[in-house]
Nucleic acid binder design. Sequence first.
DNA 1: GTCTATATGGAGATAGAC
DNA 2: GTCTATCTCCATATAGAC
Lengths: 233, 233
Amino acid sequence: MARKPANTTSSAGGKSARTRQRILDAAAHVLSRKGFAGTRLTDVAEVAELQAPAIYYHFPSREELIEEVMWSGIANMTDHVQQQLDALPPETGPLDRIEVAVESHLRYQLETSDYTTAAIRNAGQLPDNMRARYEAEANRYGDVWRRLFDAAKREGALRPDLDARAARMLVLGALNWAAEWWNPRRGTLDQVIRTAKSLVRAGLAVPEAVEAEPMRKPQRSRARKPAKTASNR
Amino acid sequence: MARKPANTTSSAGGKSARTRQRILDAAAHVLSRKGFAGTRLTDVAEVAELQAPAIYYHFPSREELIEEVMWSGIANMTDHVQQQLDALPPETGPLDRIEVAVESHLRYQLETSDYTTAAIRNAGQLPDNMRARYEAEANRYGDVWRRLFDAAKREGALRPDLDARAARMLVLGALNWAAEWWNPRRGTLDQVIRTAKSLVRAGLAVPEAVEAEPMRKPQRSRARKPAKTASNR
DNA sequence: GTCTATATGGAGATAGAC
DNA sequence: GTCTATCTCCATATAGAC
């Protein structure tokens, strides 16, 4: 995951590694607030409590530093959400799984991590030469959600008038945007999560299934052309 | 709305006014893609097909140019959506009104205007001294939506487990985010709009009202403490 | 009104001391 | 490993020709 500085004699938790982490944290903080072009190394250095040239001991360039922040922001989100999904009992219904993803995403984004906010806010502003690595990881996260929606569709849990891709992206947008407006002083995170889950479930589910969805196993043979939706990234 | 250049002898549709507009359009284009700090006047000039110093004949500074793009992006959106709402028959139900706002917002944002995308993407990155005018206008737009949701709540059209403010911001987020992913080559705008309307209506409505809401008049006296939600900005 | 030429300052990056 | 000093480049902004 992490590139190590040239001097590899120090142990994994040594001073160098800790300084490097401090620089990454500071960069995520600045990046999430000032944007890609507005992120200056002097500001990063100030937050990390060192002088700007010291950053070059740990990172070869400003761009590499920023790229690592962006990449790890979305990569950690992917791992976190997937981990929560993997921990569910196998018989969990598709809408319940989506609710878990909604909660995991919001919690991670709003509670844990400047990285994710930095990634989400700046994805559209990256110069072309920095996009590749980030987009590969962003697609991995998109795939997590695509699988959730495909499963729901396959089991007939999605209302048929919904376009699966549009619905998925609209839901993700609602979650991503929360970083722009949520303020702990204006309402608890739990309140936001509860509303988001309710909104998403009711928005997606066929009316009969809203109230209480039976916890049934995925029924693969009920699918009509599963390959079709799989290509719909 | 628009500041005029020093030379006011030219008519409203004169060459100066047209050049000024070209600069604004170019700035919106660059701003929506490169972000606030990444917007360079040479890039704006290139898109507008003139030399960078010529911009200073029409705008006193880079900041004033950007501020005007941001401000007019959100101001035009507000006017557009409000206008669509005002054109509805007075007996239109609150969820139907919300659907109209959803469609107006998406159409304007995705079809018409780099300005709105520029405003939405860069709102979080504005330096403090540029925020005031933009935020005043953004609040005006927020008020349009707040009134829609307050009306829906007052008439009992919103599910009671939803937090009105959180639900409103989640819906707006879903719409705002569409600019990040929608691509006309991946699906029609109409398809996105149809899905968004369906998702929002089903997500908000009390189950009984999903299918076909009676077009009834607002019933003010049914409200419980209307002042409560009004202060919930 | 728009151009060319240029003053000014700020940011990334490097050299080399400690 | 982190610092101070410095190089270089580039963007805003101005001066002044046309």
